[in-house]
Structures are given as C-alpha cells and as structure tokens.
C-alpha cells in the first residue's frame, strides 16, 4: 500500500476484531452456551422451494407446528424409507407455535407440488380462526424469496452453526440492555434446532416440572376464553380443506393428517373441548386423506414429558414408528 499507515490500520483492526470475536466465543462457551441455527422466514422459504423440485426423490412436506418440528427427524425419515427401498425427501415446513392449514392450501394451490403432505394437527388447529397462522411464511416465499436471499441464508446457516455471536440473543446491544435491566446472561435454551428446520426438546436441560405446569396452566386459561366451533360448523369448514386435499390428490400426491401424541391434562382438556367422536372421527368420513390418531397406533403413543412434546431422545423412535405406520397404511 502507498500509505503504510493504512496497511497498519487495517492489519491491526482486523487482528483486534478477530481477537475480540474469539474472546467473545470462548467466554460464552465456557459459560455453557453453544451456537445454534436460528429459524427465519428465509430458512422456511429455502425448504419450501425444495418441495416443488421435480421427483425423484418423492417430496414429502411435513406441515404442522412444534409437535412436528420437534417430533420428527427428516434424516431418520429418509433413512427409514430408504431401508424400504423408497427414495424420499422429507421437508420440514412446520412452524413452532403456528397451526399449518394455510401451508396446506398453499401447496394445494401450487401446481408444481406433486408430493405427499403429512400434516400434524389437532382439531383445534383446524378451526378456521387459526388457518392463517402461517400466512406470513407463505407470503414471504411467494413475494420476497430470491436467489440473493437463498445465498445469504445458506451462508448464514453455516455461520450460525459455528458462532455464538450469530445468535440474536447474544447481540452486544442486547447484552448491554439485559445488563442494565439486571437480567443477567441469556436464557439457556433446552430446544435444539438444525439446518433442516427440525429440532428437539431436551428436557434433561430444563426444569420439566415447571415447564409442564406452565403449559397446562396456559391451556387451562386458554380454553375458557376460547369457544370451539360447533361440530357441524367445524365439519362444514373442513369441506373446504377437503377440496385442497383433492387438488393435491389429483396431481398424484397424498395427504396424511396426523394427530400427534399428547398426554396428561393436556389431552383431557383437548377432549373436553374437541371430543374426538364429534370432531376428528367425523372428519375421517369427509376427508380424502389418510387420518392417523396416535392413540390408534401403540408405537406412536410416545411419552410427552411436558404433556405436549416428545423428548429429544425419542425423536428417532417416533420417526421410525411413523414411517412404519405410513408403510402399513400404504401411503409410502
């Protein structure tokens, strides 16, 4: 460089920056934190784009909320199907805390999608009031997703896998704010999340009693404020969903509705508000899809420590059992 001071400036600044970053990573690792992939609209869109790639392999869209996202391993699904001689590509499109009907409609409306849909949902999640919960993801995919975003997201995933500094809860401004508010270090997550958008709840890392009690308490508060639709109204709304399913079927695809395992007071409250015989069982008659309730298949009846989600150690077993059930029902 013609100006040695500039060279010095950049060399020293780069060294200080990298040193500071290294020290930051080292410190938080010693405090028991680890890097993790963070979900985003871009990551969802990246996987949604995979769903319309031509077969083979056969595309299998996994829709739902947290129970699917933290209950299935796409890699194990693929391996188990491979053992059966099937070439499938399971794509995790479930979104934590968001019921998935809008995503089902979106796939039905997409003529390029010719795959299978597995949709994890209970009767409450099919109420019209919550249909649009994943609308934001869908709008992002159709309007904002671009080659530029794809490159960015793929690189960002790599960075997030290796750097704690890539976690928004470790942004230095956020840490300063937490310090001023006396909140201390960021919360230690018991939920893991991977680049395939699947995750797991590791209850060994958590106070499971507190989580279970909080979850049940929330549900106890929620149901009195919520009026379930009358069974006939609900069923009538589901006729529209049935038409979406027919569209997927017409293109050679298949749809599976899966009532995932829940337990304890959670399922009691669900049953009080959406009795199976008045809702789910009636749906079987009108829906041109395969209907799977975990209670009908003992291998799927897996313990849910917080009443709503299976533990991370059971994900592989759950996934394998589910693939076996699909095979048994000739979906695969």
């Amino acid at each position: 460089m013609s100006n040695p001071r500039w060279l010095l400036t950049w060399l020293l600044a780069t060294a200080i920056t990298l040193g500071g970053w290294f020290a930051f990573e080292k410190y938080w690792r010693t405090q028991g934190y680890a890097p993790t992939v963070m979900d985003s609209l871009d990551l969802w869109s990246q996987h949604r784009a995979r769903a319309v790639k031509p077969a083979p392999p056969q595309r299998i869209a996994l829709l739902g909320a947290s129970r699917i996202q933290y209950g299935f391993s796409p890699a194990v699904f693929r391996d188990e199907a491979f053992k059966m001689g099937l070439n499938v590509d399971p794509i995790m499109l479930a979104v934590n805390g968001h019921y998935p009907l809008a995503a089902l409609r979106d796939l039905a409306d997409d003529p390029k999608f010719t795959g299978t849909v597995i949709i994890g949902c209970d009767s409450r999640g099919m109420d019209r009031k919550v249909w649009e919960m994943q609308a934001k993801q869908i709008a992002h995919y159709h309007h904002d997703w671009s080659p530029s975003r794809e490159v960015h997201r793929r690189l960002l995933t790599r960075v997030q896998e290796h750097a704690i500094a890539a976690r928004p809860d470790f942004a230095f401004v956020t840490l300063i704010k937490r310090h001023i508010d006396g909140l201390g270090a960021p919360y230690k997550e018991y939920v893991t999340f991977e680049r395939d958008r699947a995750g797991g709840t590791d209850y060994v890392k958590s106070d499971i009693n507190a989580i279970r009690n909080a979850r049940v308490a929330d549900l106890r508060k929620y149901y009195p404020m919520y009026t379930p639709p009358a069974p006939d109204v609900w069923l009538n709304e589901m006729r529209e969903v049935a038409r979406w399913v027919e569209r997927i079927n017409a293109r050679g695809g298949k749809v599976v509705f899966y009532r995932e395992p829940v337990s304890g007071e959670h399922i009691d409250l669900d049953e009080q508000n959406f009795p199976r015989e008045k809702y789910w069982d009636k749906l079987v008659a009108i829906m041109p899809a395969t209907m799977i309730d975990f209670r009908d298949y003992p291998p799927l009846n897996i313990d849910t420590p917080d009443t709503s989600h299976i533990d991370i150690k059971d994900i592989d077993r759950h996934t394998r059992a589910f693939v076996q059930v699909l095979r048994q029902l000739k979906v695969l």
Binding site: T9, A13, G20, A166, F170, A171
Partner: peptide, 18 residues
C-alpha cells in the same frame, strides 16, 4: 483509525439480529 475501525467491525460482527 484503528480504534474506530476495530470497534465498528466488532460491533457489526456482534450484532446479529433480524
């Protein structure tokens, strides 16, 4: 210049967010 550049660069790296 070194101080300014280092601070800004480090702040950028340590500012992941939406």
């Amino acid at each position: 210049r070194v101080a300014l550049l280092s601070l800004m660069s480090l702040a950028i790296i340590l500012s992941p967010g939406k």
